[in-house]
């Protein structure tokens, strides 16, 4: 065993070391990265915020390109004239302040029930059969903030959106195709459609 004096000295060393580490790693390092981010890459560092031009010729921030958002009325009912994102388990849906998945297991009766209800809702709203609905439309993402849907789910919604807005299906369909993001480098991840960006383009198409 080491003497009490050695032990005290050792803790005194550890204490001073931790103070210096906190100053360097806990303050200098994150502040340096913040400085770099804010000076060199401010758009990314501040959350890839998306602004649109308003009728009054000003601009307005409507969200982040990376964070999914709801297209529902005040009661949470999906608005059929917008492309709908995936189901979300973050708060009441796409609550960006409380990211979360459902954490429901594969045999959880709540999840089974939710998948059945979501299937029926889409069958009804879009007039499709259950087997035509892709998995991402029926399942909540890990973050609850997934900004993307699969190309299949976007295409499935074209007819409904076009009808609700009274514009030709072909132009809405073309919009979906032009908003398609392929796999990164052609093979990483899955092809996606960013719902917010698609809907912004959609709003422009109307006006």
């Amino acid at each position: 065993m080491s003497s009490p004096r050695t032990t005290t000295r050792r803790y005194w060393v550890a204490f001073r070391a931790m103070l210096v580490f906190t100053a360097v790693l806990g303050l200098a390092y994150p502040l340096t990265i913040t400085l770099i981010g804010q000076l060199v890459l401010p758009a990314q560092a501040n959350g890839s915020l998306v602004t649109i031009e308003t009728d009054t010729a000003g601009t307005e921030t409507v969200g982040s390109a990376l964070i999914g958002q709801s297209f529902t009325d005040a009661k949470g009912t999906p608005l059929p004239e917008w492309f709908q994102p995936r189901p979300s388990a973050a708060g009441d849906g796409y609550d960006a302040a409380t990211s979360s998945g459902s954490n429901w297991g594969p045999e959880n009766p709540d999840l089974i029930q939710a998948v059945i209800e979501r299937t029926q809702a889409i069958e009804e709203s879009d007039g499709v059969r259950a087997e035509q609905i892709p998995a991402d439309a029926l399942t909540a993402s890990a973050s609850g903030l997934d900004p993307h849907i699969s190309p299949a789910y976007a295409r499935l919604q074209v007819s409904r959106v076009a009808q609700e807005r009274g514009i030709p299906e072909a132009s809405v369909g073309a919009l979906v195709e032009s908003n398609m993001q392929g796999r990164v480098l052609g093979y990483l991840g899955d092809p996606t459609v960013n719902v917010l960006e698609l809907n912004i383009a959609l709003a422009g198409l109307k006006g």
Binding site: S102, V115, L138, S141, A142, H148
Partner: peptide
């Protein structure tokens, strides 16, 4: 039922 194990997974990955 959903046609794939996408519950709790992100589309982009």
């Amino acid at each position: 039922l959903a046609g794939g194990a996408m519950e709790g997974k992100e589309t982009r990955f």
